[in-house]
Measured scan of single mutants.
Amino acid sequence: DRIFMTRTEALEFLLKAHQTAVDKIGHPSHKQTPADHAAIEALDRLLLDVRARRVDQFQINASAAQIIVTD
């Protein structure tokens, strides 16, 4: 599946995904793992790359739809 978004929409989408990941590892019942921190770092890099126009398409994980940034 493909989803087309403007750059602004894609950045909002990534910010929400980032916040969800941060909230998940901050929850008291969740045991933090290196994979959790790696996922947040990957989202940080992706946010910067989309914002800087170095990336025009991405996929958060293998089961997610491919996001295509349109400007």
Score class of each variant (00 low, 15 high):
residue 1 D to Q: 04
residue 1 D to P: 12
residue 2 R to M: 11
residue 2 R to W: 08
residue 3 I to Y: 06
residue 3 I to R: 06
residue 3 I to H: 04
residue 4 F to S: 04
residue 4 F to P: 03
residue 4 F to C: 06
residue 6 T to K: 04
residue 6 T to D: 03
residue 7 R to C: 03
residue 8 T to M: 12
residue 9 E to P: 00
residue 9 E to N: 04
residue 10 A to T: 02
residue 10 A to R: 00
residue 11 L to V: 10
residue 11 L to A: 03
residue 12 E to P: 00
residue 12 E to Q: 12
residue 12 E to V: 08
residue 12 E to L: 12
residue 13 F to A: 04
residue 14 L to K: 00
residue 14 L to Q: 00
residue 15 L to D: 04
residue 15 L to Y: 13
residue 15 L to K: 14
residue 16 K to T: 07
residue 16 K to F: 09
residue 16 K to A: 11
residue 17 A to Y: 08
residue 18 H to A: 06
residue 19 Q to S: 07
residue 19 Q to T: 06
residue 19 Q to I: 09
residue 19 Q to H: 06
residue 22 V to R: 10
residue 23 D to H: 08
residue 24 K to S: 08
residue 24 K to L: 12
residue 24 K to V: 08
residue 25 I to C: 04
residue 25 I to H: 06
residue 25 I to D: 03
residue 26 G to D: 09
residue 27 H to Q: 12
residue 27 H to N: 13
residue 28 P to Y: 02
residue 29 S to D: 14
residue 29 S to N: 13
residue 30 H to E: 08
residue 30 H to I: 07
residue 31 K to T: 13
residue 31 K to P: 11
residue 35 A to I: 06
residue 35 A to E: 14
residue 35 A to Y: 10
residue 36 D to A: 06
residue 36 D to W: 06
residue 37 H to Q: 13
residue 37 H to L: 15
residue 38 A to Y: 11
residue 39 A to S: 09
residue 40 I to M: 08
residue 40 I to H: 05
residue 42 A to K: 13
residue 43 L to E: 00
residue 44 D to R: 15
residue 45 R to A: 08
residue 45 R to L: 07
residue 47 L to R: 05
residue 47 L to E: 01
residue 47 L to W: 07
residue 47 L to S: 03
residue 48 L to N: 15
residue 48 L to D: 14
residue 49 D to P: 00
residue 50 V to I: 06
residue 51 R to M: 14
residue 51 R to K: 13
residue 52 A to T: 11
residue 52 A to C: 11
residue 53 R to H: 14
residue 54 R to F: 05
residue 55 V to D: 01
residue 55 V to G: 01
residue 55 V to Y: 02
residue 58 F to H: 00
residue 58 F to P: 00
residue 61 N to T: 12
residue 62 A to L: 10
residue 63 S to N: 13
residue 64 A to P: 07
residue 64 A to V: 09
residue 65 A to S: 12
residue 66 Q to H: 12
residue 67 I to E: 00
residue 69 V to F: 03
residue 69 V to Q: 01
residue 69 V to G: 01
residue 70 T to M: 14
